[in-house]
Nucleic acid binder design. Structure first.
Lengths: 198, 198
DNA sequence: GAGGATAGAGAACATTAGGAGAACATTCAA
DNA sequence: TTGAATGTTCTCCTAATGTTCTCTATCCTC
């Protein structure tokens, strides 16, 4: 069971690794998390290693290795091909199976049931399930789950605005974007998937 | 069994854990449930531990661990609750995990990649994956994969028309429904799911 | 009403987690 | 070979947090 600081650290290492292709240094982690002591960070990283979340090669620079999560079990469905109105189904070479687990499961993800039509123009309907990856920051244009005033949650498209303000825009022509001071909004995660059953 | 207050507490802990990746503090639970005494909450949490619903590490901060019904953990994703613009995330009773497998997989199912915008008003966008169950008949109003003249395939909404005719209707205001003699159309399957990744 | 079970308030206290920062050791690339 | 970059090991600090009390207030059943 990870502590909050450990979880933040792990999330940062994962993101860094995904972005750069190699592990961060202690100094980079401290910087990324707004801490100033790499000694303290060393403690965190050690704790992560003991918890089995990462593997460390002592002394080595950038010596952090991520430990693969439980291998995603085979959860595949045959992918027949591409369908476009008015054409035959076109087979997709070298990809006869779709691994759903790989698409939707992963560390730090959770699902939410969407209620309401505010994202309908983005193809997210009332009753759909969305898959969210937990993270506290977002890029401009991401669809995020945001907590406003630590109270009401909402799924909206995220934009930065001048003057330390944020815009949360629904994808529905009949609704208007909302603009908030940055400090009132806490991002809880970004949309990584969506699914629906009939 | 659990008392109502214990159930509320457990639900909150589950939701918090899925969202944050670590357990809440007593103070956070009390706050989340609208209570003001962490001493009382301590009692609740102790009771939950005795009931076997959670595991506690005494003295430790955020020392609550959820007890997994391990099962097919690799195939499930925590379902936090229902999100509606402007409300807190509302927990869904008795459904804290979503099993992706049973959600989308099943006998006789296959996937297709959608190309084009002909079903956009049904929330099916260009690039989405749809899950189809193989069957040769369909009910009025189903969305089906149909083969026309044994040649071109298409994903459309299916309607019966008088005179042994069938209508295949796109869900896109700028496109018109097509009507065929029944013998020209062969239904290959009906839409049972849809998914999208970002 | 008595008595138990359940909820909660709130105060006092003890411990932990997270962090600062200095000093030192090691790695690695030029 | 060498020095900057980076990891390691300390010691110290403190706010955040768990623990333990004692009191109240409802319910419910008998």
């Amino acid at each position: 069971m990870l502590t909050p600081a450990q979880q933040r650290t792990l999330d940062f290492i994962r993101q860094y690794y995904a972005r750069e292709g190699f592990a961060p240094t202690l100094a980079e982690i401290t910087l990324g998390l707004g801490i100033s002591s790499k000694g303290s960070m060393h403690k965190q990283v050690q704790a992560l290693a003991e918890a089995g979340a990462i593997h460390l090669t002592p002394g080595r620079k950038r010596g952090i290795e991520l430990i693969d999560e439980v291998e995603s079990q085979a959860l595949t469905i045959p992918l027949l091909g591409r369908i476009a109105a008015g054409h035959p189904i076109e087979a997709i070479p070298d990809q006869e199976n779709l691994n759903i687990a790989e698409f939707l499961l992963g560390p730090g993800r959770f699902a939410l049931l969407v209620q309401g039509d505010s994202m309908i123009d983005a193809g997210i309907l009332d009753g759909d399930t969305v898959i969210i990856r937990r993270q506290e920051t977002a890029d401009d244009g991401d669809i995020v789950v945001a907590l406003i005033d630590d109270e009401s949650a909402t799924l909206k498209r995220f934009h930065r605005r001048v003057g330390n303000k944020l815009e949360l825009a629904p994808e529905n022509k009949s609704l208007r974007p909302l603009v908030f001071e940055a400090h009132r909004v806490r991002i809880q995660g970004v949309l990584v998937g969506q699914l629906r059953t009939y």
